[in-house]
């Protein structure tokens, strides 16, 4: 190795060492678990919910200690979705019924956090100025999506901020208006029990056709019980096309994080934007899906995904 290479290697190692030193605070002997229990709890109480959560997934031991600390952070209930996989960080300040609780098993944290993507289901009542939701949105940079099952109050949230996440589902979307639909930008959005009508949906499709939004991927809607969509009104004044196998796949990939699947879209109506982006409109009596084909044909391995019928109440 010549002198120059040696110098470069030395400098590189030095910069790595400095970065590590900055991360560790100059010395390596601050063992969190070695603090007395009282001090450990005091430190936890000075962290935010995301930091405590991140700590909890490091080991069983730390999870047990956090559990014993019985921290009540706020009135935020977070449930990570999945049949046997859920995290409960339940807390409700001034209400001892809801406690900060961790599922003691390590398995529940597995599949999404491996990729540093966290999908969270929020339900219950949120109080205290929604502090912890703000924390989630602002501080957890790996948050992939939110499944929101609580009663949403427009005065307490800026929903556009939530919609910047890749995947969002509002279980009670009765507050969501036509203006919200047209003026918000989102990637994958599910609205259940909404009050949008066929004209609103038609306006949304026209809005997409006139836009240059390349982030949007899928909109799924499920009507309130008793309400129906009118197929003719939804597709009014649109240049719709029937499925052709030369144009696109017959099945659309519902790319849920947990269990992606292919759904038959041959019955859907296609529309093409000026820039060539293709989308399909699927309308059933009480449900609607608008999906964009960022790839009109999938790689062979995608064909091996399971097939299911269109499901709106599913994972993100």
């Amino acid at each position: 190795m010549d002198n120059f290479s040696r110098l470069v290697a030395t400098l590189r190692n030095f910069s790595y060492a400095m970065a590590e030193r900055d991360l560790l605070g100059g010395a390596h002997n601050l063992k969190l678990m070695d603090f007395p229990t009282k001090v450990f709890e005091m430190i936890l109480r000075r962290m935010n919910v995301i930091e405590v959560f991140n700590l909890s997934i490091i080991s069983k031991m730390i999870r047990t200690k956090i559990l014993l600390a019985n921290i009540q952070i706020d009135c935020l209930e977070v449930i990570c979705d999945g049949v046997h996989q859920k995290i409960i960080l339940r807390n409700h300040w001034k209400d001892p019924v809801l406690q900060f609780t961790f599922d003691g098993k390590p398995a529940p944290f597995g599949w999404m956090l491996g990729k540093y993507k966290l999908k969270i289901r929020l339900c219950g009542k949120l109080k205290s100025g929604y502090h912890n939701l703000e924390t989630l949105l602002h501080k957890y940079h790996h948050l992939e999506g939110l499944f929101i099952a609580f009663r949403f109050c427009r005065t307490d949230f800026d929903h556009r901020e939530i919609l910047t996440l890749n995947r969002v589902c509002f279980v009670d979307a009765s507050w969501f208006t036509r203006e919200d639909l047209l003026n918000s930008r989102f990637q994958n959005l599910k609205l259940l029990f909404h009050n949008l009508n066929s004209e609103d949906i038609n306006a949304f499709i026209k809005h997409w056709l006139a836009s240059d939004d390349t982030r949007f991927n899928r909109l799924e809607l499920m009507c309130q019980p008793g309400k129906r969509l009118n197929k003719l009104q939804v597709t009014k004044d649109l240049d719709i096309m029937l499925w052709e196998k030369q144009r696109r796949e017959s099945e659309y990939l519902i790319d849920h994080i947990q269990s992606p699947y292919l759904t038959d879209t041959r019955q859907g109506f296609d529309i093409e934007r000026k820039d060539g982006l293709l989308a399909t409109i699927l309308i059933k009596e009480n449900s609607f899906m608008f999906c964009v084909w960022h790839r009109r044909f999938y790689r062979p391995e995608v064909q091996e995904y399971p097939r299911r019928t269109m499901k709106l109440l599913n994972n993100l």
Binding site: L32, V39, E51
Partner: peptide, 25 residues
């Protein structure tokens, strides 16, 4: 304690493990 808690800010679980010298399972 706040100073120690602040060390967690913006850290991933892997980084937290190193900052607080937390042993793995």
């Amino acid at each position: 304690c706040k100073k120690v808690a602040n060390m967690a800010q913006g850290k991933t679980p892997a980084q937290l493990r190193r900052v607080y010298l937390l042993p793995s399972d």
